[in-house]
């Protein structure tokens, strides 16, 4: 469905994407994985035909440079943050993009309900939370039932609850026969949505792994569950995050994904900060937590 052939894009002397080739058949789901600056967003913008580049990208057989409109009609795109007129009403936005996508007779409430935004049609976009804006962007992306979804770090600006809910929404779509191409920083997102993970580094493809192998490759095999008194949980999370551990609240404790060789480090940090630990346990192998490459 998407064919990327030897695509290169330079910004001045910097090669943002360097000779990347990739084939995404119908129904496949591919994650682009890499650090900031690896070229994920640039590659996505090339696929959308938003940038001039060397090489060729075809979507459903349409060259995005010469037949950009039909190619983009096949794509539903969700950006990291919805950038649109904040004063525009939610229902008006849906109708506007339906017209741009040549979708007749759109039932706004049905579109909104499909992404969990029922009853919000009368609001203005600026009144929506970050998670709701992303849901609206997804609803707009799905207008006219495009066979391809392109997502650019769509959960990056969401909190943990919003992220989980949004991933649940997307995972339903991943199995519905749509082709998915998405950029992500997060193991949980990749595990839930991808069948293949393409590793990008400095604009080049450095490998391809399965989502399960990604966790092993990153060493993110262990999750530490630390039980703490509720008075100190918030502070513990702040301290751990400040030291680079993506801790998050979970029931009576704090979940901390850790590399296998650093299991004791979070406990030591909390002890140094004189935060009393009531209990802890290792939850074993997991790729369901947040990790940055």
């Amino acid at each position: 469905m998407i064919t990327i052939e030897r695509v290169s894009k330079r910004f001045g002397k910097t090669a943002a994407v360097d000779d990347v080739s990739l084939d995404i058949p119908a129904g496949d789901s591919v994650a682009l994985w890499g650090t900031n600056g690896a070229g994920k967003t640039t590659l996505i913008r090339c696929v959308l035909g938003l940038l001039r580049f060397r090489g060729r990208v075809r979507v459903g057989g349409f060259d995005v440079r010469t037949r950009g409109k039909p190619a983009r009609r096949l794509i539903g795109y969700v950006p990291q943050e919805l950038g649109f007129y904040d004063d525009l009403g939610v229902a008006a936005a849906v109708r506007y993009f339906a017209r741009l996508r040549a979708v007749d007779g759109v039932e706004v409430e049905k579109v909104l309900a499909s992404v969990g935004l029922e009853g919000h049609g009368g609001k203005r976009i600026r009144e929506l939370s970050g998670g709701m804006k992303q849901r609206l962007a997804l609803g707009i992306a799905l207008l006219g039932d495009p066979p391809v979804l392109v997502l650019d770090e769509v959960t990056a600006s969401l909190d943990a609850c919003g992220r989980e809910a949004f991933i649940a929404l997307l995972s339903g779509l991943a199995g519905s026969g749509k082709s998915l191409l998405f950029a992500s920083h997060r193991v949980d997102e990749v595990t839930a949505l991808a069948r293949r993970v393409v590793l990008l580094e400095k604009g080049r493809v450095t490998g391809e792994v399965s989502p399960q192998d990604l966790g092993v490759r990153l060493g993110a095999q262990t999750v530490l569950h630390i039980t703490l008194h509720d008075r100190v949980r918030g502070r513990a999370i702040d301290v751990l995050r400040a030291r680079g551990f993506p801790a998050r609240l979970n029931g009576v404790g704090v979940l901390v994904p850790v590399p296998a060789v650093q299991k004791v480090a979070p406990l030591r940090i909390l002890a140094e900060e004189r935060i009393d630990i009531e209990d802890f346990e290792l939850l074993g192998a997991s790729t369901h937590e947040e990790h940055r490459p």
Binding site: L50, R72, G83, Y85, A102
Partner: peptide
């Protein structure tokens, strides 16, 4: 950032 979003549509 509105231009990127608008141009990502079939327009």
């Amino acid at each position: 950032g509105m231009l990127v979003y608008l141009l990502s549509q079939p327009v």
